[in-house]
């Protein structure tokens, strides 16, 4: 058994940062993702998503801070790599080799390689395993890439924009394969994507990076429970900011509309209060890109 296999967190980082020259791709990232979660990694282009994933799998070294993946520091050694699957953005496969060739190759390179599981998944989706992968459709290639990543029987799977180039049906099939693998056992997943609607179905945890910093890292249900939209006549915000965290304020001539984070019910009857979907919450946080690490994350640190 690998040391740290008893760790209850899949990913822990503290003050993690990555600098390219004078440019910070990721800064001061302190997060904790419990095991068994499917985490949506979201944020605008250039927010540091790929940088984070590459550091988690050990392909890139942090400039500052610490990180632990399944309780261990990511390293390019067989024991660590056998527990982590990584599917890069462009699904790197050998174009002239078939899926079957890839599966045989994988068996040589990995212990505990589950080629049969991968074969039966691909067969169920009618993906030809005897043809060069270059001749397959984008959706089929993505399934081969996912099949190979799952054949390792990883305990953490990191997927960088896995469905971006796929049509809706191929996307659904990809996500079904993924959720079934999660249902099968001890597997944590982090996947980056811009397609929030897909993510909301498949994920139960969200990590939002914006302006190279972590703005949110928590369970989606908790996020939905703690955010509300308030709509009312236009007013000064000084009072309300004393009792609530205003994430985003939109003022028109007559009306004020606020996305707020609150721990209890909002009792002021002059507001019309509605629940907010994940997409609106995330867009609200993205809009406040200049704000440093989310206030609640700081608060969390203080509690610890």
């Amino acid at each position: 058994m690998a040391s740290g296999s008893g760790s209850t967190t899949a990913i822990t980082t503290k003050g993690l940062g990555k600098r390219y020259g004078s440019l910070w791709a990721l800064q001061d990232c302190t997060i904790s993702v419990p095991r068994g979660r499917v985490t949506a990694l979201v944020g605008p282009n250039g927010a540091g998503k790929t940088t984070l994933l590459r550091m988690l799998v050990g392909l890139s070294r942090p400039s500052t801070g610490e990180l632990a993946v399944l309780g261990r520091a990511p390293r390019q050694d067989p024991e660590f790599l056998s527990s982590v699957g990584y599917l890069a953005q462009d699904v790197p496969l050998y174009p002239r080799l078939s899926a079957e060739d890839h599966l045989r190759l994988g068996a040589h390179l990995n212990e505990g390689w589950d080629a049969d599981g991968a074969r039966s998944r691909l067969a169920a989706l009618h993906v030809p395993t005897d043809r060069p992968v270059a001749t397959l459709s984008g959706g089929q290639r993505a399934q081969v890439g996912l099949g190979l990543a799952l054949a390792k029987r990883p305990r953490l799977l990191l997927l960088d924009e896995p469905v971006a180039a796929l049509d809706p049906l191929a996307r659904r099939e990809f996500l079904t394969t993924l959720t079934e693998a999660v249902a099968d056992g001890d597997l944590s997943v982090m996947l980056s994507s811009h397609l929030l609607h897909d993510l909301e179905r498949v994920c139960d945890h969200v990590l939002l990076l914006s302006s190279s910093r972590a703005q949110i890292c928590e369970d989606i249900d908790d996020l939905l429970a703690s955010h509300r939209m308030l709509l009312g006549r236009r007013r000064d915000l000084t009072d309300i900011e004393r009792s609530l965290t205003v994430i985003k304020a939109t003022q028109t001539e007559r009306q004020t509309r606020l996305l707020v984070r609150c721990d209890g019910p909002v009792l002021d009857p002059s507001w019309e209060i509605t629940e907010v979907g994940l997409e609106d919450i995330i867009l609200g946080y993205m809009g406040q890109g200049d704000v440093p690490l989310g206030g609640h994350l700081n608060a969390l640190e203080e509690v610890r």
Binding site: R37, V38, R172, L175, T179, E180, V182, A183, R201, D204
Partner: peptide
């Protein structure tokens, strides 16, 4: 079963369990 629901609608298994 959780797996049947997941296979049908591609949602997070933890959601079904919850």
């Amino acid at each position: 079963t959780v797996k049947e629901v997941v296979a049908e609608v591609a949602i997070n298994p933890n959601t079904v369990m919850k």
